[in-house]
Design a protein around this nucleic acid. Sequence first.
RNA 1: GGAGGGAUGGCAGAGCGGACGAAUGCACUGGUCUUGAAAACCAGCGUUGUGAAAGCAACCGAGGGUUCGAAUCCCUCUCUCUCCGCCA
Length: 433
Amino acid sequence: MIDLHLLRADPSEVTRALARRGVDANLIEDIVELDVVHRSLLQRQETLRAEVKAISKEVGAAKKAGDETAAAALAEQSRRLGAEEREAAHEAELAGVALRNELLVLPNIPSSETPDGLGEADNVECSRWWPGSESGAPEPRYEEFQRVPHWEIGEQLGLLDLERAAKLSGSMFPLFRAQGSQLLRALGSYALQQHSDAYEEIRPPTLVLTETLMSTGHLPKFSDEAYALERDGLWAIPTAEVPLTSMHKDEILKEDELPRRFTAQTACFRREAGAAGRDTRGLLRLHEFDKVELFAYVTPDQAHEAHMDILRRAEQLLQDFGLYYRVLDLCCGDLGGSSARTFDLEVYAPGCDQWLEVSSISWFADYQARRANVRFRPADGGSIQFVHTVNGSALAWARIWAAIVENGRQADGSVVLPDVLSPYLNDTVIPVR
RNA sequence: GGAGGGAUGGCAGAGCGGACGAAUGCACUGGUCUUGAAAACCAGCGUUGUGAAAGCAACCGAGGGUUCGAAUCCCUCUCUCUCCGCCA
């Protein structure tokens, strides 16, 4: 949610900023008008309420003085005003709900640093890395034996059983086997261990309340994207960002306990409703996948550094795995609705010859914190304000799994895994069967 | 799932129709005293909405109701504690 005060104070500035991501100016005008109406209704109600309270006091005084006639007359007057107040309250309530509903679907204001642009094609590539790139090695070239997609390798070596997965859950659900499953576990363990120096490890619930999914901005706008358990009023989380953002819901933190950093690995569930038919092979797009998330509540001053820390850590993991990747600075048009600025990390998978998005690292300013009502008390005694939130994947494992397996394929068909994973594996070589 | 108890300010805990935004204690902040600290004493000490301000309004788990008036009475829900049942 963006700040209503900001909208009141400078509607044209908000309109200009949101136009960068294609929001219609009329929508903002409507909200400003609704706000004026809402406040005047609220004021009318509160005035009536104050009168009722004042007269009620007089009733008590009159009764105490033994003047029953006066008391009855005052009570009658108060009753009439009370009826009026209820009516006013109802109107104010309706206006308030309408205002809130409009505000909830309004996206965040993009950072001034976020590049202009309307779609994917306008994202800015900031950097590329590949093994040896620091010391001037040329961009990687791939051997013919690395040009085998992971779903074929997975089947050949008994690492992946998508056919049986479909039998259980339908398409786009993975089933890892043997060393394939171990690789997945190793990836998660390695990452959580790497982050444990500064990020508290959390294992949150995977099913959450509607309001929890509201806080991050996934609802109300994107309900088609999430799995719902209607009978119980619960939603399957699309990312650990969701429970982490609401962990301190309705709390006021102390400035000196910020930043608070968390890391969590969870299953992530996505209906991928709008993506029917796209990237459906193998592990490219799944309804369920495991992901380690990095998250922090910060002060506005700490936000930039915290955002960069997550980016650095995600990149470090990719470098540890020796993967060829690029960093994209998402333009306004491709930015998620809650985000002010986002970097995407894409890994090159030689077997399917595609860049795979494996991380999305975002600064939300106070947009999510306002929805989740997470605030902090400044150390200098200033007034309470909303925290900022930042988060990013480090990393989304299914696609990393695919990239590692395709990269590591040897001429004989076996697969060599990154050395850094050896403490978590029996063997870093997956042999031909 | 069944029976019973509970939910009040940072914490503990009183209040159980009008004088309650809420006693008291602890914690915290400022002051006096002291070379400094402790103790003692004095003062202050929640959040939100609205407003230029004074002020007005809301908040005693949440939502609804009764009443001229609700922290206080009634209903529903949530969470929690104890006991029973079931279960990884």
